[in-house]
Design a protein around this nucleic acid. Structure first.
Lengths: 306, 306
DNA sequence: CTCTTGCATTAGTTTAATTAATCCTAAAAC
DNA sequence: GTTTTAGGATTAATTAAACTAATGCAAGAG
């Protein structure tokens, strides 16, 4: 295939539709001669005939017919995609990908304020555990859990992700939790949503090491594959869960959860806003981001967990 | 989509591959400026950006990335099809579509002589009941069963298709079949491969009417959905089948089947060779056709059934 | 601070497609 | 049988477009 032949293919499709160079020329705002020449050149380059020329009529060869069919679909698919991409550009609907745990325990309770601030904004939340891929997925932006910089996308830090045990106030009272070594006596609730197969208890182990606790085996505990379920279990007094700041800050501030020890394990991760570089300037993206930032500042985790 | 943008799409794919206008220009034997302009124009016409330009590097926008992906597949599919069509043109392998009944009872026994005559010829028989469609199917030629002219393809009559009862000699003897009305006493074998739902016994009824036989109900007989099976049943003495000339001529000539009555029903159909007009001149098609014609002449049904 | 690299831009050139006019053929009309 | 007509082929001349080459610019490397 020669690149130069490409526009001729369009002419060919039109000619094949009409089975007439004259009519095709009219549709394409060309002269009959131009169409005739384009088709002739195309046939030369392809190496096979597309039309059978009769007295005053044309017929597609079987190759020509198959090529025309293919091209019709090709062009309409291409038009479809371009139309789709154009609509995307104009759309006010932002699709935001968020991890399910953060979505339920942090984003959802706050979404009302976003609507208050930007009533025209249409946000679609896509709760998803997969790592985001802006090329593959139809996503405008995401809140990701990662180190500072990730790939080529634009990122903006939102929330520090620190890790520490939490439980319900009643549970702490009942089990006399005063110092980390008291954990030996109680059920530990684990969140294995990340690194599930490689090292499901890594965070507990890291925290226990930091707190210098020996002899506690997190593996005897109950385990959930979603962070919010682990918190939920702690809330209902099932045991001690390892909370991450954003997932438990509201509950701690409002007294439903308790942070019985001071030790904090900082895994170096954070929650980041991310979007393709070229989306950074889009108004609805800016609105979402500026709202997220103000939301994170006014309810800073440090404050809540002091 | 503008027709004029089409060649630019190719440039875009190459530029997206290299993420460099300079390298793309090199691959395309153009200057860097030409690529730059093409991409700019393309972006204008599409209405959205394809690349993010940085200091000394490019990045695809998410729209650009999706478009590039689509186009890569599109071009490779197109190349694939064109390659396929070219191979077809050069190929010596002829695919001939034939109805299964004619294939087994007429064509197969003769194919040896074709190989003798044209040892280099490669023939692929595609036994198929569907009506052929040279645009849809990958078929070079066909033997069809029809009236004289059919559509726009090139056709050449091969064999008259006349219809008359046949049975094995032993069966005729046993059942004393002398005149058509004797059929009242014996099982009739039906071939409902055509018109199965509309009027499965049409041909028997037509023949019986022609022979002026009353009171014979073909519907009580056994029925096959393939003409060759009906003949096979007659050969093995199951009853009287309605033979069509080409399917039974060999068996009659060699005494395995008998034509007990003189009446013949001519349904106006015939077996025709058919191929797309543009294939008429291809050497292997000519060989097949000339062999078919000579085969039909040297073993003319009239002769065999005199 | 200078050099290099790579994209953008522009005016000018070159290439290629398009037109317009004519030719040709076969079918339809007369 | 002759004429007319319709539609594709062909050609030289025109026009439009793409491309080049040169320059500018900005950022990162040395």
């Amino acid at each position: 295939m020669n690149k130069a032949s490409l526009p001729f293919l369009h002419t060919f499709v039109v000619a094949a539709k009409h089975l007439s160079f004259t009519k095709a020329a009219h549709e394409l705002f060309l002269t009959q001669g131009a169409v005739s020449q384009q088709i002739r050149q195309l046939e030369q380059r392809l190496g096979f005939a597309l039309f059978l020329r009769y007295h005053r009529s044309l017929e597609l060869t079987s190759m020509g017919a198959r090529l025309a069919l293919h091209l019709r679909h090709m062009f309409s698919d291409l038009d479809g995609l371009i139309e789709e991409l154009r609509e995307e550009r104009d759309s006010n609907i932002i699709t935001l990908s968020v991890m399910p745990s953060l979505a339920t325990r942090w984003l959802m309770p706050r979404l009302g304020r976003l609507q208050e601030r930007y009533p025209g904004l249409q946000l679609r939340i896509q709760a998803n555990d997969r790592e985001v891929n802006f090329t593959r997925d139809r996503i405008d932006a995401a809140i990701i859990h990662s180190h500072l910089h990730t790939g080529s996308a634009y990122t903006m830090p939102l929330l520090m992700d620190k890790v520490f045990p939490v439980c319900s106030p009643a549970f702490a009272e009942q089990n006399q939790l005063h110092e980390p070594s008291d954990l030996v006596r109680v059920p530990l609730i684990n969140d294995d949503s990340e690194w599930r197969f490689f090292s499901p208890y890594a965070e507990w182990e890291a925290w226990l090491a930091k707190a210098n606790v020996k002899g506690v085996r997190p593996s005897r505990s109950m385990s959930f594959n979603r962070g919010d379920l682990a918190v939920q279990a702690a809330l209902s007094g099932q045991g001690v869960a390892l909370g991450r700041t954003p997932l438990v800050m509201d509950d701690i501030r409002e007294g439903r959860l308790l942070k019985p020890f001071d030790e904090i394990y900082d895994n170096g991760h954070m929650y980041l806003f991310a979007c393709p570089n070229e989306f950074r300037e889009r108004e609805p993206i800016q609105q979402v981001l500026s709202w997220l930032i103000s939301e994170c500042q006014s309810y800073a985790p440090e404050e809540a967990l002091a």
